[in-house]
Design a protein around this nucleic acid. Sequence first.
RNA 1: GGUCCCAUAGCUCAGCUGGAUAGAGCAACAGAUUUCUAAUCUGUAGGUCUUAGGUUCGAAUCCUAAUGGGAUCACCA
Length: 642
Amino acid sequence: MDFIIDAAVKAIKHLYQTDVAPAAIGLQETRKEFEGQITIVTFPFTKFSRKGPEQTGTEIGEYLKAELKEVADFNIVKGFLNISLSDEYWIGQLYNEILPDDFAVAKPNGQKVMVEYSSPNTNKPLHLGHIRNNLLGFSVAQILAAAGYDVVKVNLVNDRGIHICKSMLAWQMFGNGETPASSGLKGDHLVGKYYVLFDKELKKQLTPILERVYEKNDLSLFNDNQKEKIHALLISIDKLKAKKYATPDTETKLIGELTDKISVEEDKVKEIAKNVTSLMVETQQMLQKWEAGDAEVLDLWKTMNSWVYAGFAETYKQLGVDFDKYYYESNTYLLGKDIIEEGLQKSVFFKKPDGSVWIDLTADGLDEKLVLRSDGTSVYITQDLGTAQLKYNDFHMDRSIYVVGNEQDYHFKVLFLILHKLGKAGANGLFHLSYGMVDLPSGKMKSREGTVVDADDLMDEMETTAKVQTEAMGKVDAFSEEDKLALYNTIGMGALKYFLLKVDPKKRLLFDPNESVDFQGHTGPFIQYTHARIKSVLSRAAYQPNKNIEITELAGVERDVIVLLTQFPTVIREAANGYSPAIIANYVYELAKSYNKFYHEKSILQAEDEVLKQFRLQLSASSAKVISKAMGLLGIDVPERM
RNA sequence: GGUCCCAUAGCUCAGCUGGAUAGAGCAACAGAUUUCUAAUCUGUAGGUCUUAGGUUCGAAUCCUAAUGGGAUCACCA
């Protein structure tokens, strides 16, 4: 549409002797209720035309109509200049732009971008939240590739730490040598089972300790530091409770707030008390052994991790996501200390008397942040500084996207700020693709309370639902068993993926497991169905792509589809710039809807003549191609039949 | 308490860098198939765009504040 903008700039120069920047010409799609396809808002130009918006619009419109052969007509409604481009123009777009194989294939832009996503812990299976992460990451990578970037997909696996030791210890204590083979459980689920078991046992041990604290005021199990903290917490709790009981019942809001505060303080007591359970003490010892390279512990760790990886591989395959490179925290957790040294020399960091290293970010509106413990060991951000450097050294990417949930917004703000202050290469290309949590009707998912929606279970359920729905329609009776299974998978996953990706990433998402994801309306299967429908017509007509057809006039519904098709490259660019699969999802829905309307109003196989029939077949084939491509950017397959 | 994010139809969501009478889907109701796949299409009904100010010719959109919801503020990751 640049040619219209250029012409409009010329028009204003010619008519009003004023230079305006091309960006000042606000082109927008004409609303459905008006005639035309492109609209220019004329209000901004009345300043130098010194005429009313209607007259200004008329003058510009007349200029454009005279100068551009593509402009067939125009009309003015208030300050809006609605331009109708000629059918010849739109038909030309279909033949010259959309139909060729390189439509919407961006030229490589020479930029390399890394997308890091998934980043699982190896102590439990993936859940619904991970699904959102994986689908987002994969889709964003596809979109960036389609926009011309050289994309590297990376998975940073959190394969070490206290949480893995919990699973390991529980397995040692209660596992009796159980393996995925002996139990028939998927590896990640087996390890997750022991993680849950650990927590259960921990709770058992915790109860008597807490009783001693609260009922007998006995703090003898704790060291001095812990005693001090607990003591302070107990006082705080007592105060809050006194305040709560003194509050009249009518003040429900205040009582609620106090109750929340009390439970926060009680949780802190719990956290401290956990550390003196024999279970936690043993877990800590195990972690120390792991870090010291104890052969037996390392062996167990390797074995259990291998179970988990086998399980993850299956889940990833079912999700349809993949990675170009894996990083493991067991290899990277010691990194970053040289960066701390560098930062100290550059005076970006400072050392406290106890030896701990900090950065003061108060001038940037943040807090002081610890970057290295007083005992010289790494914290989370130390590692992340190190891995950021490692990844950059490996790939020298221009941009780096971290797909991580919004609970880590603060962490990434700090991380990026530090890398900036250190003047690190690539620091300007860092971006945290922060997405909202997936909530259940009951609230937040909590693995400890068993309210997580397991990824594997959910995908199976989706497939089953797809099966039930499809069979009820009786359309697949002629399918082979194999084709049926493939179709159920395509539809079930399509419904799930579309459901999760059509929403703006930063918004939190409500997922109701009881109300299975819809298959009608604004859904993946709706779009898949449109594709299958087109393919069916094409195969009936034995359609072959062929040369230009002599056609001069378009029906409204045909033009609408072409207009949408021409927007695809722009939509890809927008989605890439905003890192938003939702933009693609909403676009392809509009396209499918527009096609279905055309399909209903115009017969293809029974078209008035052969030329028109061929034209409509070409329009249909183009629509199918774009639908398939757009869905591919979301990681969703489209079936040939359904 | 500080900081960040979110708030649009009963429900789930669109609404791009300010522009026309705020749009879809689901749910409800009424229709369309002797014709290419009815997982479709057409129509009816449903709104104080959380509230109050401000900027502007013009605000769902930008600014400020309030309210509600969420996240975060560990020598955890």
